[in-house]
Write a protein that binds this DNA or RNA. Structure first.
Lengths: 365, 365
DNA sequence: TTGTCGTGAGTAAACGTTTACTGCAAGGCG
DNA sequence: CGCCTTGCAGTAAACGTTTACTCACGACAA
């Protein structure tokens, strides 16, 4: 018994290779158990191993500073401990918040978060989708809206099919019209509620600065604005081509300054609203006395500008997606959640003074 | 010859498994070549393969829609096609820009970018470092500064050692005082140049809003401020405890409003400068007539606030790091680059009117 | 004719885990 | 006393590539 603690190398056993990395075989050898037993202890599998043996293996692993090779594990499990997040641009705080939501959940379970910036190119989106599938990511979170007209949509659909056949879980954070779990916001409702809020403040002549042209999100937000205006019997034709960045907001505001000012402006994003806000101010317009301005997002800087905005649950979108990907519930192909949003009233919007006049006119008339 | 196109299965050959995934063996079989040859064609290795054979394999791969299993490849290559980026918080535009720089380069070579938010916790930083090492990332980019006092520094140092023994390349984007390639900015020079610029504008009483307490970057920036003030014979004691966010800027400005206003304020980050700026304005101070304000970073919103700031090459920091990680040059253990920064003068700083008076006083006196 | 070389292709051994089987005691039961 | 569980642990076959060797074959010089 004594002196035979270390058996000679079995086939499969191996001392530390040239890389110097200690492998599970080294741990097994030191603990005097088989590779299988060592694996069962280290991988935390629910498998009957005597407590004494378990402890011996743990000790050996700790002595040797054993670090499991995740790649080898991934090979047999057919799955890496990674979650891919496909977004427009990490530099955009909207996407950054989503990514952060994913990452926080991922970190808790020792998952790694892969960021994929597409710059809203459907081709790049597909390329990344493929890359993540090839990487055997545990999950893929696709966060951008789609371009209903894009020719790449067909390929995208095929990739979704392929994903559903594989073990990697797909979540979509915007209505992509594909068979995949979706965690969304009701974009139509977002602008409807915001528009109603402004109408409620007495504004009648409301301008809308559109989102990025062709994007599904933009389309739906535009619809929401139109519908809310229509239900109040107002004219929804005061629209400006836009985008989600600062510049489009600036350009729209510059146009407004040349004509009769609107009572209020809704921009499809906070950034665009910042552009509108600063440009109007530079043009001598007092906000909110003359014009109310509202954005969508409630990003970190909205508070700084004291901007009224629609708060979007960006972080939660990401966090929920990650939770489902990592979670143990069985796959739910018809999983679909809509998260609520709400108006955050701040200083860039106020009661429309001229509305008082209108009311009086009505009363008098 | 005819009818024998498909040889029977050799050992190692295998039809599509339950996962339905086509493997290289399937391609080899269809092309009527060995696994090795198929591998040599698909992996693009520089190895003599006849053009006809090469084409046959390519065709087979394309017919079967073969997608190589990156995990298996990674196992034998002992390296995944991933780059880890360890940052404070992706939601902070400073880090987002760095991450974007990395990702752009990574994407070009089909590398995946892993984002690791530490929230500036040395413990989390180490945990992620370990995780990335275990993941056999091709490279690790560490972007945050260090806390010279942190007890975790010892473990960090050991991880650096381990990294240097492994094949994964480590780059540090801030002076971490470890044996690793570094791509940095001279933080001392950053504040020195900015302070000199303000002194050049005639400001004498200059306040400094510090960065996050204890962080090496903050310490060096503080030193730079002090040195520039000293060399001009000015008092550098007007310092406010700070941080890199908006709130610390606000708090510092609130304090300033209670006492004699400074001629100018330098904040250790743009965000803090935004806080200073808006709070001073809300307090009735005219910028830049009464007080000049400058930040550090030149982030996306600096332009919106018309903020004078020091432009930091954040994107390039990330891009260069990624290039080196992916690049083919042999490892350069003493690789060390310092990137230049420059002042971006904007509207929040101006010539100090009272300096004219001083000058006249001097002339008269 | 024989030895040498270059070219193109195949064999099989890694890479480091996980896990489906198999095996062996010990204990319960008829 | 034989048989069937049950609890632990070991054997070996995957997982899907890459790559160090080996080999066959034709050309070419000696």
């Amino acid at each position: 018994m004594a002196g035979r603690e270390n058996r000679e190398a079995r086939p499969g056993t191996r001392r530390r290779g040239p890389g110097g990395k200690v492998a599970l075989a080294d741990v097994a050898e030191r603990a005097g158990v088989s590779l299988a037993t060592a694996s069962r202890v280290m991988s935390g599998a629910a498998y009957p191993v005597a407590e004494a043996t378990r402890e011996r293996v743990r000790q050996a692993a700790s002595d040797l500073a054993y670090a499991p090779n995740m790649i080898a594990r991934a090979l047999v499990r057919r799955m890496t401990n990674t979650i891919g997040v496909v977004i427009g641009d990490i530099t955009d705080s909207y996407f950054a918040e989503i990514a952060r939501g994913v990452e926080d959940q991922a970190y808790r379970r020792d998952f790694l978060t892969i960021i994929c910036n597409t710059d809203r190119s459907p081709a790049v989106e597909n390329a990344y989708f493929r890359l993540l599938l090839d990487h055997h990511a545990a999950g893929i979170v696709i966060a951008g809206g789609s371009f209903p007209q894009a020719p790449e949509n067909e390929a995208f659909r095929e990739l979704v099919q392929e994903a559903s056949r594989s073990a990697t879980r797909l979540v979509v954070l915007s209505d992509r019209d594909v068979e995949a779990p979706a965690i969304c916001v009701d974009d139509r409702m977002v602008t409807m509620d915001l528009t109603r809020y402004l109408i409620g403040l007495g504004h009648r002549r409301i301008a809308y600065v559109e989102g990025l042209t062709g994007l599904s999100t933009s389309l739906r937000r535009g619809e929401g604005f139109a519908r809310a205006m229509a239900e109040a019997g107002l004219d929804a034709s005061l629209r400006y081509p836009g985008g989600f960045g600062i510049e489009p907001g600036r350009a729209a505001a510059a146009l407004m300054l040349r004509n009769e000012l609107p009572d209020a402006v809704i921009a499809a994003s906070d950034e665009a609203a910042f552009g509108v806000l600063t440009t109007l101010q530079q043009g001598g317009v007092e906000i909110p006395r003359q014009v109310s301005v509202a954005g969508i997002d409630d990003n970190r800087h909205a508070q700084l500008f004291n901007l009224t905005t629609m708060r979007l649950p960006t972080y939660d979108l990401g966090a929920m997606a990650a939770k489902w990907v990592i979670g143990d519930e069985p796959s739910a192909p018809d999983y679909r959640v809509t998260l609520p949003c709400r108006v955050i009233p701040r200083g860039t919007t106020s009661w429309n003074a001229s509305a008082d006049k209108r009311k009086e006119d009505l009363r008098a008339g």
